[in-house]
Design a binder for these strands. Structure first.
Lengths: 293, 293
DNA sequence: ATCGAGCATCAGCTCAGCTTACGCTCTGGC
DNA sequence: GCCAGAGCGTAAGCTGAGCTGATGCTCGAT
């Protein structure tokens, strides 16, 4: 009978690529991981890893075994979720990851409602970068993560992670309020304005570029700022224009005009495959949905 | 993460009913099983067992968890089978169980062919009672078992065990050869003859009773004998009539007339769920099928 | 050419989990 | 009705699986 703890290491290796990364993710020493993978290879009787240069890669047999491991672990996750469900309502710690806007605008009221409905639930929120989400979930550093995607930028599915939609919101063009009549939501008219976009590598950065690209021009980028309150303050100071989702534009400062554009942002929750039935996860999803209405 | 070794114990408990039986089956002391199940219950956070009298029974939550365990273990079995397949052809020990007729008539030539095709396979045959088959497979005492069923007596599916057909054979009515013309294969005409059937509790015993019952009478049973050569010798000695499948009637003695009746026996192989792809299992199944033609 | 990242191996230690011993409770046979 | 034994749980003690930390080797990047 194959050892599931070792299969877990193999699966993590398939996801992360190096033994050192697996070790760090699971809080082991690289030595331990190496030893356990060697043992797994001995059990299997087939080479699973191959040293290439100073790294290792999975052999085809190793990849197939990693797929089996994925399936086994998912079923274990489901079993655990079901147990938690029979254990009664949501209880204990729930580690929630969120992108900054959600952490500020969406989560606090949802958590307040949750505290009333499920007083024994202990949510812990942590801001997290989108790129770290799958690893954080798989490594069990987080249990649920609020994620978002834009029309022009659909998120691709990740192994071992499932996503469920929570709500959709419009995206606004934010520009200095000159007092004149609105010029409508088309981006093209602002092609010569300076733009304020998210920092490079963020979803919002890419989203703004894609949106301008779709409108047929490359924006002149002046400011790189992630926090929407700051963005709006810059807009009010006539530093440029920006694209801002509704949740980023609650309570806009004076001197900012918001015009809807033809793009929407979708917000969802991501969790480990199999934990959809977990009562704490289900309760948070429910609270977020109610909040979003 | 739930411990799979402990889940295995829970699954065995679901199948066998007592901790002592689980311990014996897996070569542990009952104490070890008890401790591990307690630990599993602690992990689960839900009562899984309930003491009733001097036994334990699974709670509903325990039963559901056992079902998950079954799924996990089956997937592990498949992973192992796939590894064995990539390891190259059939190799190593293969523990084969068989009912007596198959052990005598079907297996030896199949094993001879197998030895030529796969010299590194080390088959070990053991006669086994039909009632012990599922436990022997689940407890990993055997890898493959030859099983049979009669038209009137279909085998019900067992958790964790899969069955695949190998061949079908006719069943004969064996009666003393009086030299006269055959009276045809109807059983009714022999309703007053003494009958020779398998020992009580065997499939063959039940099969004979069902066949007579279907023909509308209750047989007068004189001899209870399992071994078909002995049965045929008794028939030749004019001790009664009997129902004998073809494999039990190779080389019949003088003075026995065999007439086909409207019943067939199906022979199949049973193995642990998930091990169908195991090269040794597949090779044996293949050899048996060829042999049966 | 050199340095560091990445992996394997070795030695040593710790704790999970096994066995043995024992006690308790219930059941079935006499 | 009683008692022997089946069945389960707990306590104590031991062993080995598996972890850490040290060391060495091999690449690849600067």
């Amino acid at each position: 009978m194959l050892d599931v703890r070792r299969l877990r290491l193999l699966r993590e290796l398939a996801l992360r690529g190096t033994i050192a990364a697996v070790a760090e993710a699971l809080a082991f020493s690289p030595s331990a991981v190496s030893q356990q993978l060697s043992a797994l290879e001995r059990e299997a009787g087939v080479p699973l890893l191959e040293r290439t240069g100073r790294r290792v890669v999975l052999t085809p047999a190793g990849q197939r075994l990693a797929a089996h491991a994925e399936a086994v672990l998912e079923r274990l996750e489901r079993a655990g979720a079901e147990l938690a469900a029979t254990r009664g309502g949501p209880t204990g710690p729930l580690r929630i990851g969120a992108f900054p806007t959600a952490a500020r605008a969406l989560l606090p009221p949802a958590l307040a409602a949750l505290a009333v409905a499920h007083p024994r639930l202990e949510p812990a929120v942590e801001e997290v970068d989108a790129v770290d989400v799958p690893d954080a979930l798989r490594a069990r550093e987080l249990d649920v993560v609020l994620v978002h995607e834009y029309d022009l930028l659909p998120a691709e599915p990740e192994d071992g992670v499932e996503t469920e939609p929570v709500c959709e919101e419009p995206v606004f063009l934010a520009e200095p309020d000159t007092g004149g009549a609105s010029r409508g939501g088309s981006l093209v008219i602002r092609r010569d304005e300076p733009w304020i976009v998210g920092r490079r590598g963020t979803l919002c950065h890419t989203m703004a570029l894609r949106a301008c690209e779709a409108a047929g021009f490359r924006p002149r980028i002046r400011h790189l700022v992630d926090e929407y309150p700051t963005v709006l303050a810059l807009v009010a100071a006539r530093q440029g224009v920006a694209l801002v989702p509704r949740l980023g534009a609650v309570d806009p400062p004076e001197g900012v005009r918001l015009t809807p554009v033809a793009m929407r942002r979708r917000i969802g929750v991501a969790y480990r495959a199999g934990s959809a039935l977990h009562p704490s996860v289900a309760a948070l999803t429910h609270a977020l949905r109610r909040q979003a209405r």
